[in-house]
């Protein structure tokens, strides 16, 4: 139809706006933005690259001194050594022990802290008891007190409870320190749930736990994901509490990594150190990559539509 195609163009050759707007593609603005992003990404990825290539080289190759060149002769020996036979102090059984310690610390602390915090948040948002505001304020102030202030009192407390040096003690510490921020997270989430939903459930005869398990909890999946990610990465990366509140045989992976890297005996095995560091960073890295989308959804989850 010649008529129509004519009318698609103005007299000066510009297209009449119709349908999807043509994308600008390689406009100057896009080139600037993506160029900058690329440079920044490279800047952060570069150390990772160095670590990976170094961990795959043998010591002779490293001594040549070119840290940027890819490995000529790929070897996984450093990774095996880091995992199973690197020496930390007196023991020479690698990072594996630390890994399992960390897992044994991580799982109960995460489950415990997320579970308790979600109940806290639910109570604070929906069952407004006398003194709820005061309780909440105290909890939030707790988040702002520097850890250093609490370290020694906690040592004494744990010692009196007979938990000092044990994994249980450390789990307890992680649970307590995670509480303010997680409670805040859950409380704010549950406050955004329309109050009428809660009221409807009460008219329907649901009690405290029924409302929690059947209505609130199923709705809070996005925020549970966020809380879990925060806790998993926080606890996994923790070094300070691990050193202070556990004994050497219970040291988490981060502490062991430090001990391997800083071990003064013998030559510095850069490839083993790099492999050990990558192994330790693996867990949070995998979590971030696997849950990126879920995490963003949870962070931005606002009002819940019914």
């Amino acid at each position: 139809m010649p008529d129509k195609s004519m009318s698609d163009w103005c007299s000066d050759g510009q297209r009449v706006p119709d349908g999807p707007r043509p994308s600008s593609g390689f406009s100057r603005r896009n080139v600037m933005i993506y160029g900058t992003l690329l440079v920044i990404a490279l800047y952060y990825l570069f150390p990772l690259y160095v670590m990976i290539v170094t961990s795959l080289k043998g010591m002779p190759e490293i001594r040549i001194g070119n840290i940027f060149s890819p490995p000529v002769d790929i070897t996984f020996q450093p990774w095996v050594k880091a995992w199973s036979s690197a020496c930390t102090g007196l023991d020479c059984d690698g990072l594996s022990r630390g890994f399992w310690n960390s897992v044994r610390i991580l799982i109960p602390s995460t489950i415990l802290s997320v579970a308790i915090a979600s109940i806290n948040g639910y109570v604070l948002a929906n069952w407004r008891f006398r003194g709820a505001d005061l309780f909440f304020t105290i909890l939030i102030i707790g988040a702002f007190i520097p850890y250093q202030v609490m370290i020694y009192p906690l040592v004494i407390l744990l010692r009196e409870m007979g938990l000092y040096g044990s994994l249980t003690g450390l789990v307890l510490v992680h649970t307590v320190f995670g509480m303010p921020i997680l409670t805040l997270l859950f409380r704010n989430y549950f406050t955004s749930v329309p109050e009428e939903l809660f009221r409807a459930a009460r008219v329907d005869g649901a009690g405290f736990w029924q409302i929690y398990f059947q209505i609130m909890l199923p709705m809070s999946l996005p925020i549970i994901v966020v809380a879990t990610i925060l806790q998993v990465t926080g606890i996994w990366n923790d070094f300070l509490f691990g050193v202070i509140y556990t004994k050497p045989e219970n040291y988490p992976m981060t502490v062991q990594l430090n001990n391997i890297v800083n071990s003064v005996r013998g030559v510095k095995e850069y490839n083993v150190n790099m492999a050990a560091a990558l192994l330790t960073a693996g867990v949070p890295l995998i979590i971030y990559i696997a849950s990126g989308k879920l995490f963003m959804r949870g962070i931005t989850a606002g009002a819940v539509k019914g």
């Binding site: 009428e196 409807a200 459930a201 008219v203 005869g205 209505i215 019914g306």
Partner: peptide, 17 residues
């Protein structure tokens, strides 16, 4: 509320999502 023998319809429906 559940012991009062009432049924209630809310302004925002309040269906369990």
């Amino acid at each position: 509320p559940s012991a009062r023998g009432i049924g209630m319809v809310f302004q925002s429906y309040a269906l369990y999502p």
